[in-house]
């Protein structure tokens, strides 16, 4: 899950630093995640994981770090083989 999240972040978050340089608890906002970037990330996460994130989960805190994303999204994710997700390339984060 976190591997997939890292891939999505690297392709759609437009952070100021490489995602690889961040730990799971590093502040994504401090790393340059913008408000509009969070929406892009969420749409990309929905595509990558095949889920729809309910409105009540979409908070400032959700995007605080990779851990917070993984923790909140884990209950929504069906048991899908990781390699099938990994095949997906940069998912759309735009309309």
């Amino acid at each position: 899950m976190k591997t997939e999240l890292r891939r999505v972040l690297s392709e759609s978050a437009c952070l100021d630093v490489p995602v690889d340089s961040l730990s799971d608890t590093d502040d994504l906002y401090a790393a340059g995640l913008s408000s509009i970037g969070t929406v892009r990330v969420m749409l990309a996460v929905e595509d990558a994981l095949g889920i729809e994130v309910p409105g009540e989960l979409i908070t400032f805190e959700l995007f605080q770090c990779i851990d917070s994303l993984a923790h909140a999204l884990a209950p929504l994710v069906p048991l899908v083989p990781q390699n099938s997700m990994a095949r997906r390339q940069c998912m759309d984060a735009r309309g």
Partner: peptide, 19 residues
Amino acid sequence: MPVIAGKRYIRELGMQHQR
């Protein structure tokens, strides 16, 4: 950065509003 699919753009606006 064109909106390619309208439904997706609507979802994007909805997410921003939820936030």
